[in-house]
């Protein structure tokens, strides 16, 4: 409040202690700021340059323009990775949101064991994708998990071999991913539902709306901001998904479940195609940015 006219005079006469107090936060923050700048934005820029270079096994700074990108989009494996990302992303986001929303609506019906159920549903989120992937690898493994269990129970004809079926394996990743994130989505939606004034529901009941109509016409539209945040979280999880795929299928069978992140990793670190890997990383960065930047922009503008 006293700033404005006061500061100009105060600054010259400021005692050492006060000047120190003003500088300490900046000094403390400086190292992490420099490190973050170097290791996030610096490496991003380096990666961007590599993607325009002729790098193979080792970085090589010979500038080749967009040749790596051309090779990337001519590669069949990259197209498989993109298609998989489309399938996985679409189903992961769609099923995750639907199941999460349904769970939240069910839990919102004032049921008695809500606390317990909420914890159970939320629990998978506490696991890392590696654990989820490994656990589901065992569950879905025809020789170990569900199929074997069904056989032991006497359902000899039961067969569930999606994990080793090149056309189906990508859906096992969807199952594991949705299992992991549905509880988290539920928590987001539940918080949104709890934020809706109870008397709005009462007013709608008096207005003659049935429960499904209340949800469809009033509650779900009121959750629009939650839908947006959930979409943001899930879509960037989907684009970045790496550990889940690595643990569950490692991109296999063959490269049937490759996604851009595993493609990038394989190219850059085991196939000696650093330039190609860098180009795919840049495409992923651009995709994430295309989603996040407009969101951040609208959020920040909305604040003001």
């Amino acid at each position: 409040m006293t700033a404005g006219a006061g500061t100009a005079v105060a600054r010259s006469a400021e005692p050492f202690g006060a000047r120190l107090a003003r500088w300490v936060p900046k000094l403390v923050l400086a190292p992490s700021f420099v490190l973050a700048f170097l290791f996030i934005y610096g490496l991003m820029a380096w990666n961007g340059y590599l993607s325009l270079s002729a790098s193979r096994l080792l970085p090589n700074y010979e500038f080749v323009g967009i040749e790596q990108y051309q090779r990337l989009f001519e590669s069949e494996r990259w197209w498989v990775a993109l298609t998989n990302l489309g399938i996985f992303g679409g189903l992961f986001i769609g099923c995750g949101m639907t199941i999460g929303l349904l769970l939240a609506i069910l839990l919102d019906q004032k049921i008695r064991v809500e606390g317990v159920l909420r914890t159970i549903y939320l629990y998978p989120m506490a696991l890392s994708f590696i654990v989820t992937g490994t656990a589901w690898k065992w569950i879905l493994n025809p020789g170990l998990g569900l199929e074997k269990l069904a056989h032991e129970w006497g359902f000899a004809g039961f067969s569930f071999d999606w994990l080793i079926n090149p056309d189906r394996a990508i859906y096992t990743i969807v199952i594991a991913g949705v299992w992991q994130s549905a509880g988290f989505v539920m928590a987001l939606f539940l918080a949104g539902l709890r934020g809706i004034d109870d008397s709005i529901l009462k007013a709608a009941q008096i207005d003659g709306a049935s429960l499904p109509r209340i949800y469809w016409r009033i509650i779900i539209p009121c959750l629009r901001p939650v839908f947006f945040s959930t979409l943001m979280v899930l879509s960037h999880l989907a684009i970045k998904s790496f550990d889940l795929v690595m643990a569950l299928t490692a991109g296999g069978p063959g490269f049937a479940t490759d996604v851009p992140a595993t493609f990038m990793y394989t190219m850059a670190f085991s196939r000696g195609q650093i330039g190609l890997g860098a180009a795919s990383a840049t495409i992923m960065l651009a995709t994430v940015a295309a989603i996040v930047v407009p969101y951040l922009y609208s959020e920040l503008r909305g604040r003001r």
Binding site: S199, I200, I206, D207, G208, P221
Partner: peptide, 30 residues
Amino acid sequence: ALPKDRDIAMVFQSYALYPNMNVAGNISFG
């Protein structure tokens, strides 16, 4: 009987307007 079958109207302390509908929509929803 259900609230909708009682032919009543109610005004709440928090107003309880439907945030996603405009004023005309709020008035005509019932």
